[in-house]
Design a protein around this nucleic acid. Structure first.
Length: 322
DNA sequence: ACCGCAGCTCACACCACACCTCCCG
DNA sequence: CACGGGAGGTGTGGTGTGAGCTGCG
């Protein structure tokens, strides 16, 4: 299984790295993955990692609606903007900054470490934005999280909450809950309860299988395969690429100085600290002094002061941060 | 049932300015 | 018709912000 990012040059595709802070004990996902899900159970499927992908309105809705065991998940409406959780470009648990520096220096981001770190620390500091140019020119870039073994394992539930599939389910369940559909809520709730009775949902799925051993939902195996094939064919023809009309503008925007994300004047490239004034807080003064001192030390050691997502400062060295 | 609060997701405004398009002489 | 110059519009991306939502007490 691979996550092909090459198809997406849209910055908005990576614009929301939603930390899914769902307890790993909350949902029995194994039961869900035992469902005859066309994409999620297909370990050879390439996922389009972008905000509006995986589930395309209409076709996919129909496919999923048709293929899901209706009495189990019939109310899990797949919304048009179902957000596939982005790969975890999570910060490294040690340095708090992860491999995001790869943006400028090495477009090949080490997803595995980020994935693992986010998994370990609960995705506390997931970045919410990412420049599209981080994958620029890497047409063969692909995200290959260590999902396969998990997917193939029967003991993975509770371990793989960072899996896009799982987060997808989470988002779907949230969506369900947001629709106010009480039946859906019950389904979700029952699913969550399955942690206390882990085999509940699986048992009911199995019972449904027993009731109609060759049919899932309203289609038999052949019909389902046909639906899946159509779905895959249509999916492969999607074009989520953000069209950059003027590459020069993009280059300029990428190189343009910014202050808090906003474009800044060329002569304001350095956001210098305010000169001391009588109204400033003494603590703030101390903070600047401390920052200068620490920065001097870091510079002396060959490092660079960097501003982190959350306003904290970190120092980059050749081999990491502190 | 209702309210207030916290926490979360999501869409969008904001910024500077090089470049593009259009119009006029 | 072709050309040059000027004015105004457009596009670009990271971040902050607020609306809207859910869950909980």
């Amino acid at each position: 299984m691979s996550y092909d990012l090459s198809a997406s040059d849209d910055s908005s595709s990576f614009n929301r790295w939603v930390p899914e802070m769902v307890s790993t004990d909350s949902i029995d996902y194994q039961s869900l993955f035992d469902l005859p899900f066309p994409s999620f159970c297909d370990s050879t499927t390439d996922y389009d990692v972008q905000q509006n992908s995986v589930v395309e309105s209409g076709c996919a809705d129909q496919v999923f609606a048709d293929l899901l065991p209706s009495h189990q998940l019939e109310n899990l409406s797949l919304c048009q903007t179902a957000q596939l959780p982005s790969p975890c470009f999570g910060p490294n648990s040690e340095n708090g900054y992860g491999n995001l520096e790869a943006k400028n220096e090495e477009s090949r981001v080490d997803f595995d470490s980020g994935y693992a770190d986010v998994h370990n620390n609960g995705g506390k500091y997931l970045q919410r934005s990412f420049s599209s140019n981080c994958f620029e020119g890497k047409s063969s870039f692909s995200f290959r999280p260590p999902f396969d073994s998990l997917m193939e394992s029967h003991g993975f539930h509770g371990q793989a909450l960072s899996l896009p599939e799982n987060s997808f389910f989470i988002s779907q369940m949230r969506k369900v809950s947001s629709t106010g559909d009480l039946e859906s809520m019950r389904n979700v709730h029952n699913t969550q309860r399955s942690i206390s009775t882990p085999s509940t949902m699986e048992n009911s799925i199995n019972s449904s299988m027993e009731e109609s051993p060759f049919k899932v939902g309203r289609y038999n195996a052949e019909e389902r395969q046909e639906k899946i094939s159509k779905y895959k064919a249509k999916r492969s023809q999607r074009n989520f690429n953000k069209t950059i009309k003027y590459a020069c503008r993009k280059t300029l925007a990428d190189t343009r100085p910014r202050i808090r994300g906003r474009f800044a004047r060329n002569d304001e490239t350095v956001e210098s600290p305010q000169p001391t004034c009588s109204t400033r807080d003494e603590d703030e003064d101390n903070l600047w002094v401390m920052l200068h001192e620490v920065e001097d030390e870091a510079m002396a050691a060959g490092g660079t002061l960097m501003n982190s997502f959350d306003g904290q400062f970190q120092f980059q060295f050749n081999h990491g941060y502190f």
